[in-house]
Every structure is written in C-alpha cells, then in structure tokens.
Lab assay of single mutants.
Amino acid sequence: PQECLLLEPGLNEIMANSLDYNERLWAWESWRSEVGKQLRPLYEEYVVLKNEMARANHYEDYGDYWRGDYEVNGVDGYDYSRGQLIEDVEHTFEEIKPLYEHLHAYVRAKLMNAYPSYISPIGCLPAHLLGDMWGRFWTNLYSLTVPFGQKPNIDVTDAMVDQAWDAQRIFKEAEKFFVSVGLPNMTQGFWENSMLTDPGNVQKAVCHPTAWDLGKGDFRILMCTKVTMDDFLTAHHEMGHIQYDMAYAAQPFLLRNGANEGFHEAVGEIMSLSAATPKHLKSIGLLSPDFQEDNETEINFLLKQALTIVGTLPFTYMLEKWRWMVFKGEIPKDQWMKKWWEMKREIVGVVEPVPHDETYCDPASLFHVSNDYSFIRYYTRTLYQFQFQEALCQAAKHEGPLHKCDISNSTEAGQKLFNMLRLGKSEPWTLALENVVGAKNMNVRPLLNYFEPLFTWLKDQNKNSFVGWSTDWSPYADQSIKVRISLKSALGDKAYEWNDNEMYLFRSSVAY
C-alpha cells in the first residue's frame, strides 16, 4: 500500500478484514516500526519515573501501586492483599488454560486453511493473523472459523447495514437495554456533547472508545462508531461505564469510582452478554423472526463469544505479567523485547512474524500501555462479568443454560445491579461482590459453565490435532529472506536491522 494510513481508520481495517498475509505483515510491522521505536526511549523513562512515584508513596514499584486498587484492609472477613491478586490471577488462569488451548488448536487448523504454508500444525499462531493489530481480540476471525457456515449468520453486521443503522441508532438501542432493566436514560448533555462518529477531516481524533465523567452531571462517550456488531456491543460496554458513573455520582468525590477497576469494566460487559444472544437480537429485529436455535447455532454463537472473551485472556494476563516484571526490575532493559516474545510464545501461543530487536517497544504500540492504563482490569472484569451475569440471571428468573440468558426487561436484575453500582468505592469490593453474587472472591466457574458446550465440542473437533504449541517454530524461518527484502523496500531505514548471520545468508542466496 502506498497511501498514508492512520491506525483508525486504515490500518485497523486491514487487520480486521485482509486475507493477504503480506499486506497484514506490512501493516503490523509498519505500526510497530513507526510507533514502537519512537516510544522506546520514552517508555524507558516512564518506567523509571513511575517507579519513583510509587516508591515515594510506600509501594514496592509501580506494578505494586496498580495492584493496590484491589487492596482491602481493616474490614474483618473482607480483607484482600496485593499479593493475593497475583495468586488469584495465576490460579484462575491455570483453570482457563485447557479451554484456551483447545480454542487455540481449532483456530490454528482454520488458519492453516486460510494461509497454507504459513502455519505450523504444532506451532504458535503468527501475531499478525489474529483479527486486530495486537491479536487482543480474535472476533474478526469468526468468518474464517465459523463451525456451521450453512446456518444463518449470528454476526448481524450485514443486517445492521441493510437496515441503515447508524451510530445514533446503535447508542439508542444500548440505552433502551439499560432503561429496560430500570436504569436511567442518558442525559441530554450526553447526546449533545458526545463524539460518536469519526469527525473525519474536520479534526484529528483519538478513536479508541472511551467513556468520560467530567463532573457536575456531564457524561460523554468518545467513539468513532462503525456499523458493525462489534461496535454495537462496544456501545453497551461504554454506556455501562456511564451508568456506573451516574449511579455513584451522589457519593463524596473520592468515592466516585468503581469498587475496583475490574468492576467498572465488567458492568457494560454484562449487558453485552445479553445483547449478543440470538434471543435479544431477534427481539430488536437484527435476526429474522423465523431464526431457529439448535445445537449448531448454539456452537456458532459460543465460538463467536469465545473468540472475543476466551481468546483475549492469555493476551491480557501475559501483557500485565510482563509489565509487573519490568517494574519490579526482573527483566533487564536490554532484554525487554526478547522476554516479551518469549512470554508471548510460552503463555499465549503466539509468535512474532519477524524478529524484533531491542530498538522496538511492541507493548507500547497498544493504546492502554502508552496511555498508562493498568491492564489486569480486563482479566478480572471477565471473571466478574460471568459471576455477575449468573447472579443477575437468577434474579431475572432465567431457566436454562447461562449462555442463553438475556436480562433485558428484568427490573429485578437491574435493581440488584444498581444497588452495587451506587456504592461506588464506599464499600470494599469484596463486600460489594458478595452482595451481588454471594461470594467475595473472583471465581472462574461461571465462565467455564457458560462455555461448557463449546469446550465439549472443541475436544471432539481436536481429537486428531495437536493441542498446545511448540515454541520453537517461527513463521519467518522458511520465508525470512523474502520477508526481509520486502520489508526493507517498504520501510527503508526503519526496517529491522539484519545481523551478520542474516546478511551472510542473504549474500549466499543471491550468489547461489
């Protein structure tokens, strides 16, 4: 590609939709070469300064400071330590791993069909083939991996386009969902002041979706909304933040926050679980009234959910574990990228498509890292959202599997949720969690119950496949010279610098 592309739109479109291996590689590498390399010296300084700040406030390091958001002291029976968070994340991840490994094996087999000769049947997945710029969410792999393609499509993007949905309609439908469970409408100022579409040439905007509580009843969302099912669900997520903000607005200023950061992320995700169900999509006209649910549509639905929800958990866990180790000084600065990709291979089963030396800073190419967000919130929120969903479905008197529950129109479920939201940070999160779900610790069981039918199906699908991955295989081993030459021509001086062995191999191949 010759034109100058922004991340959004532009590069993200390539990473969402392109099936051209080399075009995807160009976009993936260009973003890291342009952005990651510029941020490397800044990120090194950032780590030093943030650690100084944390230690001045009596924390061991900046990662310890972040984990302090979960700490509860002096509340008998509800205490929770920063170290306990690490333990809980690690042991819940071990419980999730078998499901993830089977999802990984299934996706690898489907990617082998889409990119023959580029995928190893026992290796890691190349990082640039996973549906977005970071491989964070695998949602866009659904069209390549759908188990029963002859069934009606449960990705309702086409239906939204056919019905001329726009950003306003998407957010109005999200608002209807919250109102149906007894939560309030958005304010008039929300509709007047939010930026729900890309302003285009009028001004440059950071398009990463964010929710804003500017105080004095001024709530806004910034999002360059596209007419897709993914953005339909994202709208519910962002509006969930606003509902939380509005619910605790009466609290004293210092207590106007989520019980912990994971709670804030979980609220909209609960609504997304219901909004994505075929039952709900039928009720708002995005699935045909004669759409029939059966075992095959159930597996299609659960796989689509797993690509988004299960596929991202190792990504989140590994990223934050790397940062915690960096802040603690356990990874020397001259080994940041080496350790990043070692951990990516070992924990996530994902491999870099071309080698990256220590001039890169791949983590900082992600919005949340370069903008100083702690990231473990996206792991804890996933466990909380299924715990909350299970409890709210019980309040809504849902009968049947958890993945079929739609809590819309249940004011009982809405009241149970609101009673927790309005507390803000005035009560320990362990107590707030217990008030809703009857337990005071994160628990992976509801998530595993939700995906149980899919897990059973995946194990059957993978019975003749290798489950797990070898960390030795690299996608650039066989194609390295071709890849390096093409990237050198595209990126010039910003391309990865060849070492002596690679230059010798190149000259030998040319001479041959």
Score class of each variant (00 low, 15 high):
305 Q>T: 03
377 R>S: 04
264 H>G: 05
256 R>S: 08
136 R>M: 07
251 Q>T: 11
234 T>V: 03
220 R>T: 13
308 T>D: 07
139 T>H: 08
139 T>M: 05
214 L>W: 13
304 K>T: 08
264 H>M: 08
187 T>E: 00
234 T>A: 09
217 G>T: 15
249 A>C: 09
230 D>W: 03
137 F>V: 06
209 P>A: 05
209 P>E: 09
253 F>E: 14
372 D>W: 00
193 N>Y: 00
368 H>G: 05
305 Q>A: 04
209 P>V: 10
237 H>E: 02
216 K>T: 15
256 R>Q: 03
375 F>R: 03
245 D>K: 11
377 R>M: 06
187 T>M: 11
153 N>Q: 08
308 T>P: 03
250 A>K: 12
374 S>R: 05
301 F>H: 04
206 V>G: 12
213 D>A: 09
261 E>W: 08
250 A>N: 05
139 T>P: 03
377 R>I: 01
153 N>S: 06
368 H>M: 03
234 T>G: 07
187 T>V: 03
229 M>L: 06
233 L>W: 03
368 H>L: 07
252 P>N: 03
378 Y>I: 02
136 R>A: 05
214 L>G: 12
212 W>N: 13
378 Y>D: 09
153 N>F: 06
220 R>D: 04
269 E>T: 05
375 F>D: 02
264 H>R: 08
233 L>M: 05
261 E>Y: 07
375 F>V: 08
210 T>W: 08
246 M>H: 13
304 K>P: 02
206 V>W: 08
272 S>Q: 05
256 R>M: 01
229 M>E: 06
208 H>W: 03
375 F>L: 08
233 L>K: 04
256 R>C: 02
213 D>R: 12
305 Q>G: 03
193 N>V: 10
373 Y>L: 03
252 P>Y: 10
136 R>Y: 02
229 M>G: 08
367 F>I: 10
139 T>E: 06
189 G>M: 14
261 E>F: 02
245 D>Y: 06
213 D>W: 13
213 D>K: 12
220 R>F: 11
272 S>T: 10
210 T>K: 10
241 H>D: 03
245 D>N: 11
193 N>T: 07
209 P>D: 09
308 T>N: 03
309 I>L: 07
381 R>P: 01
373 Y>S: 10
213 D>E: 09
272 S>A: 07
187 T>I: 07
251 Q>Y: 13
193 N>H: 00
189 G>D: 15
206 V>L: 07
137 F>L: 09
252 P>K: 12
234 T>P: 11
309 I>D: 01
230 D>P: 04
378 Y>C: 02
249 A>Y: 14
305 Q>M: 01
215 G>Q: 05
308 T>Y: 03
153 N>W: 07
368 H>I: 02
218 D>I: 15
189 G>W: 15
212 W>A: 13
378 Y>L: 05
234 T>S: 08
208 H>P: 10
373 Y>K: 01
234 T>H: 08
229 M>R: 08
153 N>M: 06
304 K>E: 10
212 W>R: 13
215 G>N: 02
217 G>R: 15
214 L>Y: 11
261 E>T: 07
213 D>Q: 11
209 P>H: 10
214 L>I: 13
381 R>V: 07
301 F>R: 05
218 D>H: 14
217 G>S: 15
251 Q>E: 11
304 K>C: 03
216 K>H: 15
309 I>K: 03
367 F>N: 03
368 H>D: 07
188 Q>K: 08
139 T>G: 04
250 A>Q: 01
257 N>H: 02
218 D>Q: 15
251 Q>A: 09
241 H>S: 02
368 H>P: 07
257 N>P: 13
237 H>G: 05
249 A>S: 06
217 G>F: 15
193 N>A: 12
245 D>R: 12
305 Q>R: 08
189 G>E: 14
214 L>S: 14
252 P>A: 09
309 I>H: 03
304 K>S: 04
140 N>M: 05
269 E>H: 04
241 H>Q: 08
301 F>N: 01
381 R>D: 09
264 H>N: 09
209 P>I: 10
251 Q>H: 12
250 A>R: 05
230 D>S: 04
305 Q>S: 07
304 K>M: 03
264 H>P: 06
269 E>R: 07
269 E>Q: 06
377 R>H: 03
230 D>Y: 07
220 R>M: 13
305 Q>P: 02
308 T>S: 04
251 Q>V: 09
216 K>A: 15
378 Y>G: 07
219 F>A: 14
219 F>L: 12
188 Q>R: 09
367 F>G: 06
308 T>H: 02
229 M>N: 01
251 Q>R: 11
210 T>R: 07
265 E>S: 03
229 M>T: 10
269 E>S: 02
241 H>E: 01
374 S>Y: 03
269 E>W: 09
304 K>D: 09
245 D>C: 04
304 K>A: 02
257 N>K: 06
214 L>F: 00
218 D>A: 15
233 L>I: 05
212 W>S: 13
218 D>N: 15
213 D>P: 10
256 R>W: 13
381 R>A: 02
215 G>F: 01
234 T>K: 10
264 H>K: 10
193 N>I: 11
377 R>L: 08
140 N>V: 04
269 E>N: 04
249 A>D: 11
269 E>D: 10
250 A>D: 02
265 E>W: 08
218 D>K: 15
372 D>G: 04
257 N>L: 04
219 F>S: 14
250 A>I: 01
220 R>N: 13
272 S>H: 04
372 D>P: 02
246 M>W: 13
246 M>K: 14
272 S>C: 03
261 E>I: 10
265 E>R: 06
305 Q>V: 02
246 M>R: 10
213 D>Y: 11
139 T>I: 09
305 Q>H: 08
137 F>P: 03
372 D>Q: 02
233 L>Y: 02
252 P>C: 08
140 N>F: 04
189 G>I: 15
374 S>Q: 01
213 D>M: 11
308 T>E: 01
378 Y>K: 04
304 K>Y: 04
215 G>P: 14
153 N>T: 05
378 Y>N: 03
372 D>K: 00
305 Q>D: 05
256 R>G: 08
368 H>K: 03
367 F>C: 08
304 K>N: 08
378 Y>R: 05
209 P>N: 08
